[in-house]
Amino acid sequence: MTDADDTPMTPPTEEAPSSDVARGSGVALWKQIAERIEADIAEGRLKPGARLPTEAELAERFGVNRHTLRRALATLTDQGFIEATPGRGTFVKEPPLRYPITPRTRFSEIVSGEGRAPGGRVIGSRIEAADADIAAALKVPPGTEVLRLDMLREADSVPLTIGTHWYIADRCRDLDFIAAATGSVTRALEALGLGDYRRLETRITARLADEEERELLALPPGRAVMVVESINGDPKRQPIQFTRARFSADRVQLVVKN
C-alpha cells in the first residue's frame, strides 16, 4: 500500500521524532518511521517515560496515513521500545523496575525508592472459605473464614501487579475498608497493629497472562506474568497474609536478596 497523504510535515524538535521519510527509496515508509523513532529513543531525544504524540499528530508529522503509522508503532511495541497504556497514551518504555524480595518487602517503599510514584486501588473484596492451599499457608483448618482482598498496584500510573491477598477474617476485620481508603495494604495492616510483618516464604513461577490480567495490566495478547506467591508473618512468625501477585513480566525485575 502506498501513501497519498501529502500533508505538510511539522519541523522536528528536540523532543519529537524527526519527520524525514523518503518515498521511493525502496524502504517501506512504516519501517523508516520505526527507525526514526528508535533512533530518537537511542540518542536521548525521546527519554524513558516520555509520552509520544497522538497517532493523528504522528501521521501528520510523517505525512502518512494511520495504517502506515500504526504498523510502525506496532513494530516498536513488539521490539520493546514503546508501550501503549489504554486511557493514557503511548510512552517510551521505562526500564524494568527493580523489585527486591527481602524479609521486609513493601510495594510503596520499593517503587518510591526507584524514583517513581506508587499507586494502588482495591478492585474487590469478600469473605470466603479457605481452600486447602490458603488454609495451609495461613495454618488454619480448611473452611476457615478468610478475607480476600484484590488490589491493582501501579508505578507512575502504569499498572505493575495484581495482588490477591488472604487474611484470617477474625484477625483482620475492616482491613479491606482501610486499604480502600489508603490505597495501601501496609497502612491497613499498620492500622490493625500488624505493620511489623515479615516475609516467611516466596514462590515464583511464570505463565501467559489470562484475559482479565491482560485487561487490568494493559497487556497485549501473548505477554507473560510472573506469579509470586508469598506468606507474611507477624514477629512470632505466625502467618497473617497469603498473597498471590501477578506481575507484568516485562515491567518488573524481581531481585531476591539473601
Rank of each mutant, 00 (worst) to 15 (best):
E38Y: 15
I41N: 06
R121E: 04
T85A: 15
S125E: 07
R98H: 10
I37D: 00
N65W: 02
I101F: 13
L69T: 04
L52I: 12
R126N: 15
L52G: 02
R51E: 14
I123K: 02
R106W: 09
G120F: 01
V111F: 04
P103A: 08
R106Q: 14
P48V: 12
P48H: 09
I110M: 02
R45N: 14
R116E: 15
R126W: 14
P96E: 03
G119E: 05
T85G: 10
N65Y: 00
G119H: 08
F91R: 05
S125K: 04
T105S: 13
H67Y: 06
S108Y: 10
T77K: 09
V64I: 12
R88C: 07
L97Q: 04
T75H: 01
R71H: 08
S125G: 07
P103T: 13
R116W: 08
T105L: 06
E38R: 08
I41K: 01
E109R: 08
T102D: 11
G119C: 13
T54Y: 05
P96Q: 01
V92Q: 10
A74P: 02
L76Y: 01
E57F: 03
I101N: 00
G120L: 06
R45C: 13
Q79F: 06
E94V: 09
A34Y: 00
R98L: 15
P100S: 07
K47A: 15
R121T: 07
I37L: 11
S125H: 14
Y99C: 02
A117K: 11
Y99G: 00
T90V: 08
R121K: 04
E38I: 09
P103Q: 07
L46H: 01
P95R: 00
E83S: 14
R36A: 15
R88V: 07
K93H: 12
E43I: 14
R66W: 06
E38V: 14
E60W: 02
R36V: 14
K93R: 12
S125N: 11
A84C: 08
E60C: 08
S108R: 11
E35P: 02
E55R: 09
Q79N: 09
I101L: 11
A74R: 13
P53L: 03
L46W: 02
R71M: 04
D78F: 10
I123T: 15
A72Y: 00
R36Y: 09
L76F: 05
E83F: 05
P96T: 03
T90L: 02
S108L: 05
V92F: 12
L69K: 03
F107Y: 06
K93Q: 10
G80Y: 06
E94F: 10
R121M: 11
A34S: 10
P96D: 02
P48W: 13
I127Y: 12
F81C: 08
P86C: 12
